[in-house]
Design a protein around this nucleic acid. Structure first.
Length: 622
DNA sequence: GTAGGGTTAG
């Protein structure tokens, strides 16, 4: 909330009849100082417009203008104002503001330029609140905002996450009759998207007439869906866009690729990549980065690395994407190499890069390397670790079995304990079977008010493993109370560019009969090879036969069965699930990969497992 | 001088 910014009715009425629209009083014209000054012709203005390359040059030019008495003339000051506001030079905005202040009758143009500077148009420090203040000043001065004003001021609202003020602006827009302006419309879509209001963004999008719609409208819509995590909707709209005859531009493609990454839609992602290679002369860094992320998240770290290696201007974002991909695949060694390369190439690792490399160490069980990295970060790079980094360290130590050290680290976090840190510890307790510590971690989560259904499930499952049925049932009930039912576990598999989703015991798929037939066949083959279903993680006190039934129709297995059934012999099967990989399912998948001669790629909620010939890339450490 | 984009965490 911006202090004191209330966009009153009175002000908006002023806007409707801007003072600048009325003829300026003759007296004001006479008083303009530069009218008396001699050299105010086009030659002098041209001289002023000569491009300035530094703040110093602006100061010199401004001093010349003062000497000539034209410093308050918008025509002379404008190029200098723009240079300061939009160049991103340190101190530029201060000088821009002072030039602006000296203007006798600033116009919408001048307000717009300064506002753009405040919302980061020059990639300088953002000060969205200042942009909004300027907007109010503008209204108070009776200067009418134009179609350029709203894109900036909406951007300011988005940066402040101020939904309320943005909605007020929408009223202004309509009052001024600017609601059909292409840029204003697209800005509105984007504003709602950035505020995390995809439904409002959609509404704004739908209100754009067909003939006013541009690729930017689509791209703003796709970005709104991406931001909200509605990746299915994003891909759907991407399809609708293409069907509508639009040729997706770079940014629509980036949103779509990002959606593919999250959904695990490998085939779709790959076909977008192919389209890009056909239609674009040269992929920019952002597109390449999104491709690196997509391939890694979809299970192909090789393709991710190929795109990454071919990049000739890698920035910190690109390195972070590669590092997080390697972390997902549990390749700590390679992550450390990439991290070293990053430093060697002169890119200062940012917070995300550290998260990536620390996670990679933690998932690969590289305790010593992780500790060294953390020290380097603080001592050598003088980087203050944030709560996430502490969370990574807790995860690293706890996974490696140093549960007490991890617990002590949580206690010493400068930011105070966070839920993610406790959750990491809880997860490690599950791995190492420390039920007492798990219960106290859950208690901590509860007292932070951050315990969720998944946390209760972990403890319930641990009790079930220990055959404490009463306790297991009690925690299970709590889990249900905490909304377990609202986010059911699912697994999805991509077949010919289409994602098929399954929940446990799912019977809704059109090919359910075939799927269960396949499942039966899989089970039969596995038993022949000596597989016995492990039912110890089923948190129900029911008969063994019943448990086997639950285990057998697990959503991951249904997805796998359908994948095996509907993809060509020898093709990899890629499954994405929001569940944690169970020991049972892990062993099962490994055997399937061996018996069916298929590569099975399963992305669970924590990491990626690739099973080939009976072995997993995680080397059973997850 | 206008709109739209990427990475991390549980």
């Amino acid at each position: 909330m911006v202090g004191g910014l209330v966009l009153s009715q009175a002000q908006t009425h002023q806007v409707a009849t801007p003072r600048t629209a009325a003829p300026a009083p003759a007296q004001a014209l006479e008083k303009r100082p530069w009218d008396q000054a001699q050299p105010c012709g086009t030659a002098a203005a041209a001289a002023a417009a000569v491009s300035v390359r530094s703040l110093d040059e602006v100061r010199k030019a401004h001093a010349r203008h003062i000497k000539l008495g034209v410093d308050r003339c918008p025509r002379h000051a404008r190029p200098l104002l723009a240079a300061c506001a939009l160049s991103g030079w340190p101190g530029g905005m201060e000088l821009a503001a002072s030039i602006f202040e000296s203007l006798v009758e600033p116009e919408a143009f001048d307000y717009n330029t300064l506002m753009r500077g405040h919302v980061g148009g020059g990639r300088g420090d953002r000060e969205p609140a200042a942009a909004l203040r300027l907007y109010v000043d503008m209204l108070e001065a009776g200067v009418g905002p134009d179609s350029y004003t709203f894109p900036f001021v909406l951007k300011a609202c988005a940066q402040l996450a101020s939904l309320q003020q943005g909605r007020q602006l929408q009223a202004h827009i309509e009052k001024l009759g600017l609601q059909h302006d292409e840029h204003v419309q697209n800005s509105l879509i984007s504003f709602y998207g950035k505020c995390g209001e995809p439904a409002m963004a959609r509404l704004a999008f739908d209100r754009v007439e067909d003939e006013e719609r541009t690729t930017a409208s689509w791209s703003a819509l796709l970005a709104a869906y991406t931001k909200a995590g509605l990746w299915g909707e994003c891909l759907e709209s991407f399809g609708a866009m293409v069907l509508d005859g639009w040729r997706p531009d770079e940014s629509s493609m980036v949103s779509a690729i990002s959606a593919c990454a999250h959904l695990g839609a490998f085939d779709v992602g790959r076909s977008i990549h192919c389209a890009l290679l056909r239609n674009t002369a040269r992929l920019n860094t952002i597109m390449q980065t999104s491709l690196v992320d997509m391939y890694a998240k979809c299970g192909s770290i090789e393709k991710a690395a190929a795109v990454f290696d071919a990049m000739d201007d890698k920035n910190a974002w690109a390195y972070s994407a590669m590092l997080s991909g390697l972390a997902l695949h549990g390749d700590g060694r390679k992550a450390l190499q990439v991290f070293d390369a990053m430093v060697r190439e002169g890119h200062a690792p940012d917070a995300a890069a550290y998260v990536g490399v620390l996670n990679a160490c933690s998932r690969a069980g590289l305790l010593e390397d992780g500790l060294r990295c953390f020290d380097r970060m603080r001592l050598e790079h003088k980087f203050a670790p944030n709560a996430q980094h502490y969370g990574c360290m807790v995860d690293l130590m706890a996974r490696a079995g140093r549960l007490d050290d991890a617990r002590a680290l949580i206690g010493s976090m400068p930011t105070g304990p966070t839920d993610t840190a406790w959750r990491s510890l809880l997860n490690a307790c599950r791995i190492h079977g420390d039920l007492d510590l798990a219960e106290s971690a859950l208690e901590e989560l509860r007292s932070l008010g951050a315990a969720n259904a998944g946390d209760y499930v972990i403890v319930a499952d641990m009790h079930a493993r220990a055959k404490n049925w009463a306790a297991a049932a009690a925690f299970r009930t709590e889990a249900v109370d905490w909304g377990l039912a609202q986010s059911p576990g699912f697994s999805a598999v991509e077949v010919r560019g289409e994602l098929h989703r399954f929940v446990s015991q799912d019977m809704s798929h059109p090919r359910t009969r075939d799927i269960y037939e396949m499942l039966h066949q899989m089970e039969w083959q596995l038993r022949f090879d000596g597989y016995r279903p492990d039912t110890s993680e089923v948190a129900l006190d029911v008969g063994e036969e019943e448990k086997r039934h639950v285990v057998a129709a697990h959503s991951q297995k249904l997805a796998m069965a359908f994948g095996l059934l509907s993809t060509p012999e020898g093709a990899p099967v890629r499954v994405v699930t929001n569940l944690r990989m169970s020991k049972e399912c892990h062993a099962y998948s490994a055997l399937i990969s061996e018996i069916f001669g298929r590569e099975i790629v399963i992305r669970d909620r924590n990491r990626l497992h690739r099973f080939r010939r009976g072995a997993c890339t995680c080397r059973d450490y997850w």
